[in-house]
Computed example of a mutant assay.
Amino acid sequence: MTALVLASGSASRRAILEKAGVPFTIDPADIDEGAVKAKFSGSPAELALELARQKALAVSPRQPGKLVLGADQVLEFEGRAYDKSCDPDEARKRLIMLRGQTHALVGGLVLARDGEIVWQYESRCEMQVRAFSDAFLDRYMRDAGSILTAGVGGYAYEGLGAQLFDRVEGDFFAVLGLPLLPLLDALRQHGALEA
Rank of each mutant, 00 (worst) to 15 (best):
M1G: 15
M1C: 11
T2I: 13
V5H: 01
A7Q: 02
A11W: 02
R13C: 12
L17W: 04
E18Y: 01
P23S: 07
F24I: 10
T25L: 04
D30H: 07
E33L: 09
K37M: 14
A38Y: 01
K39S: 14
L47A: 12
L51W: 01
A58Q: 04
R62P: 08
P64S: 13
L69K: 08
G70A: 12
V74K: 05
E76D: 13
A81V: 14
P88D: 06
P88M: 10
D89N: 15
E90D: 09
A91M: 03
R92Y: 02
R99G: 08
A104F: 06
L109N: 15
I117R: 01
W119M: 08
S123G: 06
Q128S: 15
V129N: 07
R130L: 14
R139L: 06
R139M: 05
M141I: 10
D143M: 09
G151P: 02
V152D: 02
G153H: 04
G153T: 07
G153V: 08
E158V: 11
G161E: 09
F165Y: 15
V168R: 09
E169T: 10
F172R: 10
A174E: 11
V175N: 11
P179Q: 07
L184W: 10
D185E: 15
A186P: 10
H190M: 04
